[in-house]
Structure formats: structure tokens, C-alpha cells
Design a protein around this nucleic acid. Structure first.
Length: 239
DNA sequence: GCGACAG
DNA sequence: ATCTTGTCGC
């Protein structure tokens, strides 16, 4: 990217290009039940180096039967796109896709950290990446991007529809009693009912479903190992 | 014009 | 996302 800020002439033209790309991807979205719910679920997440110049991504494959992570893959790339609300996938997408493609074990669906359909153009990061990878994908956001929702019970499993412009775009799901809910929306090759069931089925004792949580833990380790002063010194053979 | 705004 | 330990509250 050459233009760096909203004050640069041509910024709005770039924004329109990005929006057009999202609308094209949205046109390729396939909505269908995921049945039966797959046993092996991939999860992906990313983190940034202290100077913000490097993006670390991790992907895992989680076995719902044994409740264990059976595969982990990493990717490290330069961060070349800024964080702009509604364009998150342009920033994190390349690294996350690379990590997912590096997985060796098969999986039947991917859980992403962020919205899928629950996006202004119905193409959040989960939809964007799942469509490009042409794999079943689901968005699991820790907070809301758009949409309104009512009060939901405080017990685990409580849900409320997430609505935007008179359309249901997702489900607000409380995964643990008394904890803040997560925002579930479809990405690709799933329907909302299947998405919510799968996310709920991937939850153990934490707010975040295991595939995504394990990916978060994995990327934290990667970051620690490559972004730490001590680690850098060791790599450079300094004592 | 004034907020809101995934990670 | 990231800066950051203990601490107040259900």
C-alpha cells in the first residue's frame, strides 16, 4: 500500500476498492448446514511484535473427541496493512491463511477470531478467509462490530439474535455462566444453526471455544519465542 | 456533524 | 492487537 492515511488524496478510492473486493467475496459465500458436525476443528489467531512490524499467526487442529490439539502450524510475516475497522481481514488474513495452509492434519471446519457474516458487507474476516480457502468457516468474535441484541440469560448456553438492518446476522452466545457472551456468525459452507451448535460443542471451561483459544495460546508462545529480548539474544549468540 | 468501530 | 499486578466483585 502506498497511501498511508485518511488525509491522503485517493484514500476513498482505495476504500471503495476494498469494499468491492468484500462484495465480490460475499457473492461466493455458500450457506448450507454442516451435518454431521465435524470431529476435527481448526482454529486460528494472530498477534503482533512489540514494534507492530511483524505479525505472528498460529493455526491448530482440535479433536473434539479426545479434546486435544493434534496439529499446530505457524506463520510469521511483515505487517503491511493497518488496522481499519471492517477491513481486519486485509491486515490479518495473509498470515492466518498461511498458518492454516501449513496444517498437516485434516479438519472439517475453521473457527476464526472475529466476525463472519456479522459485518457491514456481510464479509468479515471469517467469511473472507473461509471463502478464499473454500473451507467451512465460522466467525467467533469477542466483541461486537455491528448489530443490536437484547438481554440474554446469565446461564451458559443462553443466546440472543444479533440483528442489523432487519436481518439476523448472527447469534450472541453466552458460553459460560456469568461471563460476557461471544458473537457467532457464519463464514462459509455452514448455516447459523450449525455454527452455533459447533461453537457451543467446542466450549469446555472457558469463554472462548477451544480451537480459537488453543490457537491464541500457540501464537502467544510463538511471539514469546521470537519477540523476546532473551530469545533475540540467544538467536544472535550473545550472552 | 457526532459517535461507533472485530483484532 | 498491545501497554500491565494486584485487586475488587459476583
Amino acid at each position: 500500500m502506498t497511501l498511508r492515511g485518511k488525509s491522503d488524496p485517493g484514500w476513498s478510492a482505495l476504500v471503495e476498492e476494498w469494499k468491492a473486493a468484500q462484495r465480490r467475496l460475499r457473492g461466493r459465500m455458500i450457506i448450507t448446514p454442516l451435518d454431521p458436525l465435524p470431529r476435527f476443528i481448526a482454529g486460528a489467531d494472530c498477534a503482533f511484535s512489540g514494534d507492530q512490524q511483524t505479525i505472528y499467526a498460529a493455526a491448530v487442529v482440535y479433536d473434539r473427541e479426545t479434546r486435544r490439539v493434534i496439529d499446530v502450524a505457524h506463520a510469521t510475516r511483515p505487517a503491511e496493512f493497518p488496522y481499519i475497522p471492517t477491513f481486519l481481514s486485509f491486515r490479518e488474513g495473509p498470515a492466518i491463511k498461511q498458518a492454516i495452509r501449513a496444517l498437516k492434519h485434516e479438519f472439517g471446519a475453521i473457527l476464526f477470531d472475529g466476525q463472519g457474516y456479522a459485518h457491514p458487507r456481510r464479509c468479515g474476516i471469517a467469511a473472507h478467509l473461509a471463502i478464499e480457502l473454500d473451507q467451512p468457516g465460522i466467525g467467533v468474535g469477542k466483541s461486537r462490530l455491528i448489530g443490536e441484541f437484547g438481554t440474554l440469560a446469565s446461564k451458559a448456553g443462553a443466546t440472543a439474535p444479533l440483528v442489523d438492518d432487519d436481518e439476523q446476522i448472527g447469534v450472541v452466545l453466552r458460553t459460560q455462566k456469568g461471563l460476557r457472551p461471544v458473537f457467532v456468525s457464519i463464514g462459509h459452507r455452514v448455516d447459523l444453526g450449525s455454527a452455533v451448535k459447533l461453537v457451543a460443542a467446542c466450549c469446555t471451561r472457558y469463554r472462548i471455544p477451544e480451537p480459537t483459544r488453543q490457537a491464541d495460546l500457540a501464537v502467544a508462545k510463538l511471539k514469546r519465542a521470537s519477540d523476546t529480548p532473551a530469545a533475540s539474544s540467544r538467536r544472535n549468540r550473545i550472552s
